[in-house]
């Protein structure tokens, strides 16, 4: 018998899962797009992960993190549900015990985590707007009809990236259109976009933070070689990008689930279970809270969203 722990990180764009053993070795991993439907994404994810484990493996803990962590935590009966900042830090620390700075740019969120001696000391997250996140890059890629996977390579070819307003997505977009209209090469525009992501991040999320090496860069955008290059250039430090950087949240939450281990053994048969949600507006008072009710096999097992605590 081998003890295993499952970590699931459900983000706005992608859903990530890993199974680790008690020494934090990755047994199997999976990555797929959330497509706005976290429940089915996780069902598919678990189906994939099950192919990687044997009958000798027993799941002793499940952790969920990411923006849909609460919903999915309920669905799989997770032993721990934690925010992605803590999960990312714990995951990263298990590979880079000395890490001082984690840069993370995801689909909707971007954040910076500062650590010292293996303890998170400070962090910051983007505020209201999604400027400078993956969502912005992929919408611009679509506009330029460039495959997002090709974006980084194109940026690397550029010798002189164009300057693009970094402060606001809307300005950046009109700047980009004007530069394209003026006749700048596509490579240079793509490189300019990658650089604007870096500058925006440092001005916005990294504002006032002391960025010290070793620096680890994670999140979907860390796969973009152009962005990595400009981080190196602007910070004048080496930037570590792991192949499995996108899995750090899932790894972190799997590690954390070990702290909550009990006698319980989890099975992973979620395909047969009908799990649906219904949203409705409560009309009991003038707050008109949006209530989300969660049904498992037609029984309501939980509901949330009320201000009064009724649900």
């Amino acid at each position: 018998m081998r003890k295993c722990y499952l970590g699931i990180d459900i983000g706005s764009i992608s859903t990530k899962g890993v199974v680790i053993d008690s020494d934090n070795n990755i047994i199997c991993k999976s990555y797929l797009y959330t497509k706005g439907d976290p429940i089915n994404a996780v069902k598919n994810l678990i189906r994939e992960l099950k192919k990687g484990i044997t009958s000798d493996d027993v799941i002793k803990g499940i952790g969920t993190t990411g923006s849909a962590r609460k919903l999915i935590g309920l669905m799989v009966g997770a032993s721990i549900v934690k925010n992605e900042i803590t999960a990312h830090a714990i995951g990263t620390l298990s590979f880079h015990p000395n890490v001082r700075t984690i840069l993370e740019i995801g689909g909707q969120d971007s954040k910076i985590i500062l650590l010292n001696d293996g303890i998170i000391t400070d962090y910051s997250m983007n505020t209201l707007c999604a400027a400078g996140t993956g969502a912005f890059l992929s919408s611009q890629a679509k506009r330029l009809e460039v495959d997002i996977e090709e974006f980084g390579n194109m940026a690397l070819k550029s010798k002189s990236p164009v300057k693009i307003a970094a402060r606001c997505t809307v300005f950046a977009e009109s700047d980009l259109i004007h530069k394209a209209g003026l006749g700048y090469a596509k490579d240079d525009i793509v490189a300019g976009l990658c650089k604007s992501i870096v500058l925006n991040y440092l001005n916005n999320v990294g504002k006032g933070k002391k960025i010290k090496p070793p620096i680890v860069f994670q999140g979907g955008v860390s796969k973009n070689k152009g962005v990595v290059k400009y981080f190196k250039e602007v910070l004048n430090e080496d930037i570590i990008v792991d192949d499995f950087g996108h899995l750090m949240g899932a790894i972190g939450i799997a590690i954390l689930s070990k702290n909550y281990e009990t006698d319980k053994v989890y099975n992973l048969d979620f395909n047969e279970v009908s799990f649906i949600t219904k949203g409705e507006e409560c009309s009991r008072c003038s707050n008109n809270c949006e209530i989300l009710k969660i049904y498992k096999d037609n029984n309501m097992i939980d509901a949330w969203g009320s201000k009064c605590g009724r649900y």
């Binding site: 934690k82 925010n83 900042i85 400070d122 962090y123």
Partner: peptide
């Protein structure tokens, strides 16, 4: 939640550690 995690870790009151 993550802010409280940080404060707890800093003060050694945390149940969260990279075991």
């Amino acid at each position: 939640e993550s802010f409280i995690d940080i404060l707890e870790a800093k003060n050694g009151k945390s149940s969260i550690s990279p075991c």
